[in-house]
Design a protein around this nucleic acid. Sequence first.
RNA 1: GUGGCUAUAGUUCAAUGGCAGAACACUGGUUUGUGGUACCAGUUACAAGGGUCCGAUUCCCUUUAGCCACCCCA
Length: 463
Amino acid sequence: MIRKKIIKPKKVVKKAVKKPKLEKSKEEPIILQGLRGMKDVLPQDQSYWEQARRVAEKLARDYGFSRIDIPLVEFANLFTRNIGAGTDIVEKEMYAFTTRGGDKVALRPEFTAGICRSFIQHGMNVLSKPVKLFSIGPVYRYDRPQEGRFREHYQANYDAFGEEDSILDAQIIQLAHRFTQNLGIKNIQIQVNSIGCPICKKNYNSLLVNYLESKKNKLCQDCKRRLENNPLRALDCKEDKCFQVSAAAPQSVDHLCEECRTHFKTLLEYLDELDLPYSINSRLVRGLDYYTRTVFEIYSGTEDAKKNSLGGGGRYDRLIKTMGGEDTPAIGFAIGLERAIAEMKRVQAKPYKSPKPRVFLAQLGNLAKKKSLKLFSELEKNGILTAESFGRGSLKSQLKIANRLGVELTLILGQKETLDGTVLIKNMATGAQETVSADKLVDAIKKKLKTDNVIVLHNNNHE
RNA sequence: GUGGCUAUAGUUCAAUGGCAGAACACUGGUUUGUGGUACCAGUUACAAGGGUCCGAUUCCCUUUAGCCACCCCA
């Protein structure tokens, strides 16, 4: 559990006694607390984040996506118009505000709208298709926080423009699968569905509403409400009576137009060819208005089916045109990094292992302390990753740190060595010490690190 | 946004209507320029505000935050 505290240091109280008027009227106490639903990524977690970033970037390269970075803030109506004014994401969850200049802006709740804006603005439609773009960064939703749900969370986002063929859908789904695989997450489940083009989408929706209306008295309270704002959601209800109703309800895949059905059918063929662990979920709907045809989500399937999805995506063939660009089909995928990382931890997947210093520099005495700063820099310039603890005085405490860090060599620079122009090299595994002249130090270290490598790996292999 | 549960050192947990303890972690020491273990010592907490009471970390209320369910989603 994480506790939060509002800290009012005692000093402040003391000061307040001295100058009560100033303190009181001038400012509110500083609240030492992050904003709700926003988390710090602390150093001890960075190995997981680094791993996630690396996987994201590697897959982008491997699948031919170019990196694009877009602003965190856009005109608010970019989102309201394109994600859909009635969707929860923009209706209830947008961080929207007015700037000093009077512009109505919002923190991005997702990537796609901004990416599309950039695509059109910079005339990327002239580029060779498909245009594949990759992004990574925070998005913002004013939600009520829970585990795996934050107000600020990071997404890795992949979008591909200009190709209608469902082979691209299959490739994106494959990419999504590879993402989780590369992170070491096993037992992945992918759910796919097709919600059709706007025409069959609309037809199906009215068909479903008609059906549900006719059985309205058999539905639970929640579902009656869902009928109004999100009828598809009623298909997902856990109530027994609703389940019976939804079992006989019309399914979206049965009511696709000819072209959409073919598109979906070929996608499934591609997916079969890829041997991906997918299933069709005719109740899968996504919360954004712009989706057409293919939609999919990816889950970790080891726990109950209720688990939050790790990521999802779909096709948005009409969006670019709606926004005023040239008619360009597109498909995208986003994965939530916090959730992916939580899953990595759950299955004990290996985080990224950053290089650790193999050398420690200890200094003793004022003169040596002065010299050690320059020596440290020399080592750094020569590519020798070195740890130090300049603030500590005693050799004992410095060696303690060196030992804890698991370095292979400790360089000792004391009064005597400084005057002689030498450095003492101590092998931490054997305890053997050797005096080396300062100008030969770098070579000596490099030589030792090579030969001592094998022994030391055995001794310091805890983590 | 609705409902429920929770809140004690950096972390994991105790106890208590009247001095808040432990373990791990951290800092230093066990003679002078040498690590691990062991031993010793030290630093650090009752989320905030209000109420009841002689007295509240403990009981009550509010706020804040975390978690859970709904909603939604990554």
